[in-house]
Structure formats: structure tokens, C-alpha cells
């Protein structure tokens, strides 16, 4: 996949997501994570995001995953929409990152953003719905 991936979150949620991803998929491609800290100024946050966007962009743009729409990490990321080839998807979860790390089919930035939003939503479950009714089935 040639679209870059950057996770921007409150505190180090994004870094920990990437750690968990690497535990499950050790060969995952290089994804970037940025922590937004409350003591940072907006200018500092913006500069850090811009610098990482440059690193992450291999020419096909960068998919920015944030923890929550309306939060500062999301709001500052959104300010790059008109400046750089960037798409922002809010509400990052581990299934989304695992899927991004194991994708085979190439997608454009726009296609990837919509695909991964749908995938993330689909993988929020009431866990008991996924459990077999009879624990002995399939044996």
C-alpha cells in the first residue's frame, strides 16, 4: 500500500495502537503516530503534524486516523485538508490498523478512507453475538 498512514491522538493512544498492531502483525508496514499533549501550543501541534505528514507521504497522500471527531488532534489534522493530499478518518480502532497493515489491494486515498471507515464500524460488535450458541459445535 503506498498511501501513508498517520495516527494522531490525545496523549500517546496512537503510539500504543501501533505497538499493539506490531504485536499482532510484526511485519506491518511503517505507520506513523503522533501524540498531542495538552501543554503544546496549536503552532507546536501543527508543526509536528506537518513534519510527520511529509515523512509519511510517499506520493499517494496520507490517511490520518484520529481518535475522535471534534477533538484537537482531529481539528488540527483537518486544517491540512486544503494544503496537502490528506484524508482524515475519526474514531480509530485496532481492527482498522490491522486491516490497513494486511491489505493486498491498492486503493486511492479517497477509496481507502471510505473503505477503512466502513471496516472500523463493521468491527464494533456486541461480543456475545459472535460467540457460537453451542460451544461444542464444529468439534
Amino acid at each position: 500500500m503506498s498511501v501513508g498512514v498517520l495516527v494522531v491522538t490525545h496523549y500517546s493512544l496512537g503510539l500504543e495502537f501501533i505497538r499493539a498492531l506490531r504485536l499482532i502483525v510484526p511485519g506491518a508496514p511503517e505507520f506513523y503516530a503522533l501524540s498531542v499533549e495538552p501543554e503544546q501550543t496549536v503552532e507546536e501541534m501543527r508543526a509536528a503534524i506537518e513534519e510527520t505528514l511529509k515523512k509519511a507521504d510517499q506520493g499517494e497522500g496520507v490517511l490520518v486516523l484520529t481518535d475522535m471527531f471534534g477533538g484537537t488532534p482531529s481539528n488540527i489534522s483537518l486544517s491540512f485538508l486544503n494544503e496537502r493530499k490528506v484524508e482524515v478518518v475519526t474514531g480509530v480502532n485496532l481492527p482498522m490498523l490491522i486491516k490497513l497493515a494486511t491489505l493486498k489491494k491498492e486503493r486511492t486515498l479517497d477509496e481507502l478512507a471510505r473503505f477503512i471507515r466502513d471496516y472500523g464500524q463493521r468491527n464494533i460488535s456486541v461480543a456475545s453475538d459472535l460467540l457460537p450458541l453451542d460451544p461444542g459445535d464444529g468439534k
Binding site: 499482532i24 502483525v25 481492527p95 490491522i98 486491516k99 494486511t102 493486498k104 468491527n123 459472535l130
Partner: peptide, 8 residues
């Protein structure tokens, strides 16, 4: 080829 499908 899908971690989440296997987990399901």
C-alpha cells in the same frame, strides 16, 4: 487473509 475474520 483477514485477522479479524479469523478472530470472529
Amino acid at each position: 487473509d483477514s485477522v479479524l475474520s479469523l478472530l470472529s
